[in-house]
């Protein structure tokens, strides 16, 4: 109570940044800060910056989880949103199906604020329940960073039909696991897990993403596609960093 509000706000900000950067799947710092006393609660809840990074609490009861997300989004006012939906936070003994269903409702709620989404990180077992929401992301004008990781059955790659073109050109950083996507043209960083990539796919990748500077490929699956007899080397002018 003796500390000036400016100092307390600074502590909240540093704590929130630290939580976000080091352990986002643990108890959120803004929640800790707002649990201390009435004064701190008022102060924390009136600072939208603390709430602009949201981790869907899938370990809570369904209703509580969805209420949290709505409340959280409301507290962030009109700031750009960064969101994580990761089923590592699943409730013990809740079935995989029930977790996926809740995650799908959470993503629906989050994508209602599509115009404010800056970063979205989804990591789930199954893709099918969130497919429609992901396709809706093509309308998210401010989305910069997107991570879509689906464990799914091993060696199965889910293809989103190219016609759906689910990603807006604002996306510059993309990570995908078990998902074949049309890469957005302004991409600078791409991380792929288990992609099936041959000569032709690589050609499409670099001609479609002329600014791609960082590429990380986990478990590359080479494709035995026919290589043109007179193949020319694919020039990846923009690429600065490559890890396979």
């Amino acid at each position: 109570a003796d500390l000036p509000n400016e100092i307390i706000s600074q502590i909240f900000l540093v704590g929130t940044t630290d939580w976000r950067n080091t352990a986002p799947l643990t108890l959120p710092f803004p929640v800790i800060a707002s649990s201390i006393c009435y004064h701190w609660r008022q102060l924390a809840r009136s600072n939208p910056v603390l709430w602009s990074f949201l981790v869907a609490p899938l370990h809570k009861e369904d209703e509580d989880c969805l209420y949290w997300i709505s409340d959280w989004i409301g507290l962030s006012a009109n700031l750009p949103l960064s969101v994580v939906v990761d089923d590592k936070l699943r409730r013990p003994r809740r079935s995989s199906e029930a977790t996926n269903r809740l995650a799908s409702e959470a993503v629906t709620l989050i994508t209602q604020s599509w115009n404010r989404l800056r970063s979205l990180d989804i990591s789930l077992d199954s893709f099918s329940l969130v497919k429609n929401q992901i396709i809706q992301l093509r309308h998210a004008p401010n989305l910069r960073q997107l991570s879509l990781c689906f464990r799914g059955p091993p060696f199965a790659t889910i293809f989103i039909p190219e016609v759906d073109r689910p990603l807006p050109p604002s996306v510059t950083k993309l990570r995908a696991q078990n998902l074949a996507l049309q890469s957005p043209c302004n991409l600078t960083s791409l991380t792929m897990h288990k992609p099936r990539l041959g000569y032709e796919g690589t050609q499409i990748l670099f001609s479609g993403c002329p600014n791609l500077a960082n590429l990380i490929i986990h478990n590359l699956v080479p494709v035995n596609s026919p290589i043109p007899a007179k193949r020319t080397e694919i020039r990846a002018e923009s690429l600065q960093s490559l890890a396979i």
Binding site: T202, I217, L220, I234, R235, L239, Q240, I244
Partner: peptide, 17 residues
């Protein structure tokens, strides 16, 4: 090696295989 065999990367400053 297969992947790198058909790529030309003139501005590469970091490579990890």
């Amino acid at each position: 090696v297969y992947f790198l065999s058909f790529l030309k990367i003139p501005n590469l400053s970091y490579l990890e295989v």
